[in-house]
Computed example of a mutant assay.
Amino acid sequence: MKRLTTILAAGAALCALSACAYNESLGRNQFLIVDDSALIQQADAAWAETLRTQRTSSDAAANGRIKRVGDRIVEAAGLTDRRWEYAVFVNESPNAFVLPSGKIGVTTGLLGLVRNDDQLAAVLGHEVGHVTARHAAERYSTSAATGLVLSGVQGAAGDYAQAAGAIGGLGAQLGVLLPFSRRDELEADRLGVDYMQRAGFTPRESIALWRLMQAQRQGSNPEFASTHPSDSTRIAALEQYIESRGW
């Protein structure tokens, strides 16, 4: 009982220190115990390390292309208050990532896959959407809170601490962290389409992009065990949203 009281007290303290912030772009509250500014230093260090350890392309046309399209998306998102950096990484896997400090990486595999700048804008819009949505800070906050609760559970489990930690960790991953990530991806898809439209790109090309991704993907985890929604889920959600907006 004493240990349970300690767990509950820790949870109450966490709630007291945290804030539920309303994100207008998402239309919902977010659980945040850190903000993006607290992650900037880590993000910049991760970017520098990635540039140091991964091969980047010196292709002027490819680099100019992602900067040209990216800058239009950033302006449409209202995020010109920070200095954005882009890099093309030599990797056959079609992928892209964003850091909250305003860094976007795109692979040569992705540039080889997209058929036009509209589809590239769909990718970059999605990545910028993660920044607007403050998903990095939200994921960090959720992970930290989950870790606190699980450490308390393990402490209360006595001799079964190791088993409880393994089971609890798996349950938290499948029941909390991964579903949140899938939600984040769909939110970023929707925001990205908004930015595409504002920047003068064709929103429906985002659907064409995901159909290309679906066609080239050889296999994937079942959706319930994946950090990303299935391609079919994303396509259906995008079709519904774009139709609702009359685009």
Rank of each mutant, 00 (worst) to 15 (best):
residue 1 M to W: 10
residue 155 G to F: 05
residue 46 A to P: 04
residue 178 L to G: 01
residue 173 Q to K: 06
residue 210 W to F: 13
residue 194 D to A: 02
residue 9 A to W: 07
residue 43 A to M: 06
residue 167 I to H: 10
residue 209 L to Q: 05
residue 144 A to Y: 06
residue 105 G to Y: 09
residue 58 S to D: 14
residue 153 V to G: 14
residue 197 Q to M: 06
residue 85 E to I: 01
residue 44 D to Y: 07
residue 229 P to W: 03
residue 15 C to T: 09
residue 89 F to R: 01
residue 178 L to A: 09
residue 103 K to V: 04
residue 238 L to G: 10
residue 37 S to N: 14
residue 86 Y to P: 01
residue 138 E to D: 11
residue 136 A to G: 00
residue 147 G to Y: 14
residue 15 C to D: 08
residue 218 Q to T: 03
residue 237 A to D: 13
residue 176 V to E: 06
residue 222 P to F: 07
residue 89 F to W: 00
residue 242 I to E: 09
residue 199 A to D: 07
residue 4 L to Q: 09
residue 83 R to E: 14
residue 21 A to T: 15
residue 98 V to S: 09
residue 124 L to A: 04
residue 88 V to E: 05
residue 109 G to T: 10
residue 13 A to V: 10
residue 206 S to E: 01
residue 237 A to S: 11
residue 233 T to Q: 09
residue 243 E to T: 08
residue 44 D to K: 14
residue 215 A to L: 08
residue 56 T to R: 12
residue 125 G to F: 04
residue 137 A to N: 07
residue 91 N to F: 10
residue 119 Q to G: 07
residue 211 R to M: 11
residue 221 N to R: 13
residue 29 N to D: 12
residue 178 L to I: 04
residue 118 D to H: 03
residue 130 H to Y: 07
residue 234 R to Q: 01
residue 2 K to G: 09
residue 112 G to L: 13
residue 167 I to A: 15
residue 122 A to Y: 01
residue 131 V to A: 10
residue 183 R to N: 11
residue 100 P to N: 15
residue 94 P to F: 12
residue 187 E to T: 01
residue 70 G to N: 01
residue 223 E to G: 11
residue 13 A to N: 14
residue 190 R to Q: 12
residue 127 E to Y: 02
residue 172 A to D: 13
residue 190 R to S: 14
residue 201 F to S: 00
residue 90 V to A: 06
residue 133 A to D: 12
residue 80 T to S: 15
residue 130 H to Q: 15
residue 3 R to E: 11
residue 116 N to W: 06
residue 5 T to V: 05
residue 22 Y to F: 15
residue 100 P to C: 08
residue 124 L to Y: 04
residue 103 K to A: 01
residue 10 A to E: 11
residue 156 A to F: 13
residue 75 E to L: 00
residue 35 D to N: 15
residue 56 T to K: 08
residue 156 A to Y: 02
residue 137 A to W: 14
